[in-house]
C-alpha cells in the first residue's frame, strides 16, 4: 500500500532525535516499525515526520548492572532478548516472553521500546515490566526522567512518553531471590493474547499483573497461593472488553486461570 507522504530523518544522537521530535508537532519515533507502519497504512495515524532511531547505538545495548539487574536499550529487538545471555542470567522471563511475540520476522524487527510505547493492551511486555518493577527512562529537551513501569502505561496506545520525548532504556531490578512467571491464552500458538498475566513472587507475596483486561496493565498483590491469587483477581472488579475472541465473562474467567498459572510458574504454592 502507498503510504501518505511523510518526512524521514535518521539522527545519529539521542539529543538530535529529541530535537526533531520536539520541533515537528506530527513527528513520531520509528523503531522497528512493526506497529506504526501498519497504523499508517490503515490511515489510523498520519505522522508528518518519522524519526528513525536505527543509528542510535546506545539504544541497542543490553547491559548487566553491578547489582545483577539489567539495562535494556529501547531499540533492542525481541529476537535479541530471546538470545541474550545477560537476559537469561538476570531475568529469564523477559526472553521467554519475547519468544512468544508474533513470529520470527516480527521478532527480528520489533523492539522492546516499540512494544511498550505502542501499549496495545494485548501486548506481552507491559505486564512483565510492571510485574518485575522496571524503571523506564525517558529523554526530553530538559534531559532524562525516570518513570516506574506501573505509572508508565496511561491508556490504550498512550504512555508517559509525551510529545517531543523518547523512551531510551528500561532498567530491570535484580531478581534478588524472587522468581518470575508468565502465562497467556492466545489466538493460535504464539498469537495475539486474549488474556495474559505476569507474576513476580518474592517470599510469600505475589505481584500479579494482568494484560488484555483493561486499557492498561492491572497490578494486584496477593499471597502467593493458588486460591488467594484467584480470589484477588475475582475481587478486582475487572471489566474486560468483549470481542470475537472472547466475551467479558470469559476473559474474567481466564484472568483467574492465567494469574494462578503465572504465580505457579514463579514458584508460588498451590
Amino acid at each position: 500500500m502507498l503510504l501518505s507522504e511523510v518526512g524521514y530523518a535518521r539522527p545519529a544522537a539521542v539529543e538530535e532525535a529529541v530535537r526533531l521530535l520536539a520541533e515537528h508537532d506530527g513527528a513520531r519515533p520509528l523503531a522497528g516499525g512493526q506497529t506504526i507502519l501498519n497504523v499508517m497504512k490503515a490511515r489510523a495515524a498520519a505522522p508528518d515526520v518519522l524519526v528513525d532511531l536505527a543509528d542510535l547505538e546506545e539504544l541497542r545495548a543490553i547491559a548487566s548492572t553491578d547489582d545483577g539487574g539489567l539495562v535494556i536499550g529501547a531499540m533492542v529487538t525481541s529476537a535479541e532478548l530471546v538470545t541474550s545471555s545477560d537476559v537469561k542470567a538476570a531475568r529469564p522471563v523477559l526472553g521467554d516472553v519475547a519468544a512468544q511475540i508474533a513470529d520470527v520476522q516480527v521478532r527480528n524487527r520489533g523492539t522492546i521500546g516499540g512494544n511498550v510505547c505502542s501499549n496495545d493492551p494485548t501486548n506481552h511486555l507491559p505486564p512483565v515490566l510492571v510485574a518485575v518493577g522496571a524503571t523506564m527512562t525517558i529523554a526530553g529537551a530538559d534531559g532524562e526522567r525516570d518513570v516506574p513501569a506501573e505509572e508508565f502505561f496511561l491508556g490504550v496506545y498512550m504512555t508517559a512518553v509525551g510529545l517531543g520525548e523518547l523512551l531510551t532504556r528500561i532498567t530491570l531490578p535484580p531478581l534478588a531471590g524472587a522468581r518470575d512467571g508468565f502465562s497467556s491464552v492466545t489466538i493460535g500458538a504464539d498469537g495475539t493474547c486474549i488474556v495474559n498475566a505476569a507474576a513476580t513472587v518474592s517470599g510469600d507475596e505475589a505481584r500479579v499483573v494482568l494484560g488484555c483486561v483493561a486499557a492498561t496493565p492491572v497490578l494486584l498483590t496477593a499471597p502467593a497461593e493458588d486460591d488467594a491469587v484467584r480470589e484477588a483477581v475475582h475481587g478486582a472488579g475487572l471489566e474486560p472488553p468483549s470481542d470475537v475472541h472472547g466475551s467479558a465473562d470469559y476473559r474474567r474467567h481466564l484472568a483467574e486461570v492465567v494469574a494462578a498459572r503465572a504465580v505457579a510458574e514463579a514458584g508460588g504454592g498451590g
Binding site: M1, Y8, R10, L30, G33, Q34, L37, N38, L50, D52, A54, A79, V104, Q105, V106, N108, R109
Partner: peptide, 13 residues
C-alpha cells in the same frame, strides 16, 4: 541475515 516482512519496512530504512 535476518528474515523480515518487506511490507513492514520502508526502503529508506
Amino acid at each position: 541475515a535476518k528474515a523480515v516482512k518487506s511490507c513492514m519496512l520502508l526502503a529508506v530504512q
